[in-house]
Amino acid sequence: MNEETTKNNDMQPTAEPMIEIIDLHKWFGDFHVLRGIDLTMHRKERIVICGPSGSGKSTLIRCINRLEEHQRGQIIVDGIELTNNLKNIEKIRAEVGMVFQHFNLFPHLTIVDNLALGPIWVRKVPKKEAEEAAMHYLEKVHIAEQAHKYPGQLSGGQQQRVAIARSLCMSPKVMLFDEPTSALDPEMIKEVLDVMIELAREGLTMIVVTHEMGFAKSVAHRVLFMDFGQIVEGNTPVEFFENPQHDRTKLFLSQILH
């Protein structure tokens, strides 16, 4: 609680909505993955989504940058509604960063080229400038010395930090993390979480799907619990962990915290 209050005011969420999700439904074939999600996220807000596997949390954040198509409801990102309009989709994707469970770096490009590619081709930044920015972000994730290697030569933790830097290079208005530490060896989880915590301290707007409850406690404004394609409960971390209301939340927490 103390940590919350000592934080600078401009680190706090604003009243401006960043993402609005209204009655979102999605099916994979006959399977009803998302069953009416309503969620409003504000600028500078940090949301952690947890829940058992298959609960739809990854699908939800993948819908936000249209890696998955929703069939019913509305998603409005930064004032633009996601529809079939390709131009809008590309515009939104440029503003929404995404970090994947399996990093998905481009193996045929060096680290610095991985980072500079988006700014050069999407934002039309001159090559030299883009590379300088890339180096800046690599320093930020403490990996500048690897800039001219290829992704295959880096460890999992290093690759994930590069992936985070690649997203940052696009100066996204919001970043989505899809289980960023789930594919990592235990000793590498911390280095990635540390980077994410630093970003949180700088006021980055982020939605993180994760099972790292320590991370949720220390940086989230809100923790959401999803099960069977619905948001079952959402609260401040303190309330969420100390005073869960719903039975399914209690059960889930008892299974992962012990």
Binding site: G97, F100, H108, L117, V122, S167
Partner: peptide, 24 residues
């Protein structure tokens, strides 16, 4: 994942193919 990563930084179809998919 390669398509998704390319799309998620806002590359369109042609750039995705030209810069990410075809070279590999």
């Amino acid at each position: 994942g390669q398509y998704e990563a390319a799309e998620s930084i806002g590359l369109n179809y042609f750039l995705t193919m030209r810069l990410i998919i075809l070279p590999q």
